[in-house]
Nucleic acid binder design. Sequence first.
DNA 1: GTCAATTAAATTGTATACAATATAATCGTG
DNA 2: CACGATTATATTGTATACAATTTAATTGAC
Lengths: 165, 165
Amino acid sequence: MSPKTTKTTDRQTPTGDRQGVADQLRLDNQLCFALYAATGLVTRAYRPLLEPLNLTYPQYLAMMALWEKAPRTVSDLGEALGLDSGTLTPLLKRMEGAGLVRRTRDKADERRVQITLTDQGAALQEKAAGVPFALACALDLPGEEIVALRATLQDLARKLRGTED
Amino acid sequence: MSPKTTKTTDRQTPTGDRQGVADQLRLDNQLCFALYAATGLVTRAYRPLLEPLNLTYPQYLAMMALWEKAPRTVSDLGEALGLDSGTLTPLLKRMEGAGLVRRTRDKADERRVQITLTDQGAALQEKAAGVPFALACALDLPGEEIVALRATLQDLARKLRGTED
DNA sequence: GTCAATTAAATTGTATACAATATAATCGTG
DNA sequence: CACGATTATATTGTATACAATTTAATTGAC
């Protein structure tokens, strides 16, 4: 390793020098990679908790959205989850196959598909009741930090949603 | 909608009552969903910046890992990125097809595959130099908040990596 | 040294994601 | 009411992800 200063470079302005560029492109200096890695690890932490429910992680998110509000259309669900029909259609078909939801064309507007919870799908909420607490334990973070981090991320998401289209 | 209290419920202890369970399972109360949504939005913000480089977002992460250290083995890269060979092998084959890296069996240990940067792959770092700053602008967050959020996420990741195996 | 155990990649199969396109239904304007 | 524009979902094709298995090479205990 070449000798380096120990100065941390949390630069906000772009630097053109070779070392500056290399530093700016280090994985550990990327917010995006910190997000990517944390999301992957959290998803992995959910896996053993969701396996008994026979749900994948995105399916669990979809079920939460449906426990909040059902029936709702594919688009509505897509807005809530940030997913499009290309992702949701096959996901919902699998969930239909598993007996959790029904997909029925809206009679008032045949373009729309309403997603309804089956009895089994609604009942699954009871079994999922312990999941958030179990995960909070696995995270091993004080409650206030979880709340604060969540708020920061929701803030970031709000800003990014504003500049999308 | 049924009438509800406006009390925010950032509970850390599990509650068994119906409303408590429903609240605990609301999407907006999940740290995991905040992470998931923010990651998706950030990834989308990268897309237009990476398109001129002909890189997908995971490929961009892999390139950053390789600009930091190359050649390195598939496993080593996998540890850095949190990915296994099932994901990396096809990803690296595509990057090899694009002329960014070479994949060569390690002569000292034929089980290993060393990933080397081609001249083109190394040169791409110059073109990527502006990406982190451009994205920081798109995030529209003060630098200190970016640094703080990154540190919090790295902390979370460290804890989760500890409890994996 | 031999062979079971381990390790490193690759492969297979399933499940997201998303861009681009296709299809069908509804809307809006004349 | 006709018909182009818009909307909602589905489909197609490509690219992650990851569990489970396979293959090939190396290590280690004897």
